[in-house]
Simulated scan of single mutants.
Amino acid sequence: MIMEQIQAGSSVESACRKCKTVTDHHVVVMLDDKIGKVQCKVCSGKHAYRPPKEEPLPKAPRVKKAAAGKKAVAPKKLSPEVTAHWEKMVQTTPQENMLPYSMSGAFQPGDVISHTTFGPGYVQQFIKPNMIEVLFQDSVKKLRCCA
C-alpha cells in the first residue's frame, strides 16, 4: 500500500470551528513536513490545521476543594435569645401587615417583611445608602432596598 504524500493542495480532514465538526479541507500552507494552514471545503474558512480528535472520554465529576490554608466555615447558629426575639416580632405581626420584600421597597427598623425565599423577617437596622439588615428565623441577612 502506497501512502500519498501530503502537500499543498492535498485533501485532509480537519476540525473546523466555524462548521463545528470535522470536514474535508484543502492544505494551503506546509511548514516543513507538517500541515500549517488549511481551507474548509464547506465554509471556505482558512485556519490552522487541527487534526480530527478521537471521541472525548467522559469527564469525572469535579470535587470542590477548600482553598489552600482555609477551612470551610459552617454558618453561625443564632443564639436562643435572638431566635426568641424573632419569634416574638414575627408572631405578633399578622400576615396581612407584613410588608412584601422588594429591592425597590422602602423599609425602616422594626418593619416585619415577607421574603419569597427566606420567609418572614424582622428589619433590625437601615444601613446607608440602600441596605437593610434583616433577622430571619435561621440567620441575619443584608438586603438591598430603596433609600
Rank of each mutant, 00 (worst) to 15 (best):
E81T: 07
S10T: 06
K34H: 06
C145S: 05
Q124G: 00
K128P: 04
E54G: 12
Q7E: 11
A15P: 02
I127Q: 00
D111L: 07
T23L: 14
K18C: 08
K41Y: 15
V134L: 01
P109C: 05
C16R: 09
G110D: 03
V82A: 09
K53N: 08
G121W: 04
G110L: 03
I113D: 02
H25D: 09
P51D: 06
S114A: 07
R144T: 05
T92P: 01
S79R: 01
M30C: 09
L135M: 06
D32K: 03
C19D: 03
E96N: 06
S11P: 02
K20S: 15
W86Q: 02
R144D: 03
K34M: 09
C19W: 14
N97D: 12
H85K: 04
P129H: 03
N97W: 09
V42H: 10
L57K: 04
E55T: 11
E96A: 11
E4G: 11
A48N: 08
K70A: 13
H85C: 06
M1A: 05
Q7H: 14
Q39I: 13
G69V: 14
Y101A: 07
M30I: 12
C16M: 12
P75S: 11
V134M: 01
C40G: 11
V29E: 10
K70N: 10
N130V: 02
G9I: 14
T117W: 02
P94D: 12
T92R: 10
Q5P: 11
V29A: 07
V63T: 14
T92W: 06
A74G: 05
A74H: 06
S14A: 15
Q108N: 08
P109I: 05
P109K: 11
L143R: 00
M103Q: 13
S11Y: 13
Q91Y: 09
K53L: 15
I132L: 00
P80H: 08
P56E: 14
Q5T: 14
V27P: 00
Q39D: 10
Q91H: 09
T116P: 00
V90Q: 07
I35L: 04
A72I: 10
V112N: 09
A147H: 06
P51K: 11
E4P: 10
L78A: 08
E133C: 04
V22G: 02
V82I: 15
C40N: 08
P51S: 11
T23S: 10
V90N: 03
S11F: 12
K18T: 07
A15T: 03
Q137M: 02
I35T: 00
G45F: 15
K65C: 09
Q108Y: 13
E87M: 10
A106G: 05
G110P: 00
I113H: 09
L57H: 02
L99T: 12
F118C: 06
Q125Y: 01
C19K: 10
P52N: 08
P80F: 11
D111Y: 10
G36P: 04
M103S: 13
A48E: 12
A72W: 07
K34C: 06
H26M: 12
T117Y: 12
Q95I: 05
Q5I: 14
S102Y: 06
Q125E: 02
P80G: 08
E81V: 09
A15K: 03
V123F: 05
Y49P: 06
R144I: 04
H85N: 04
R17P: 06
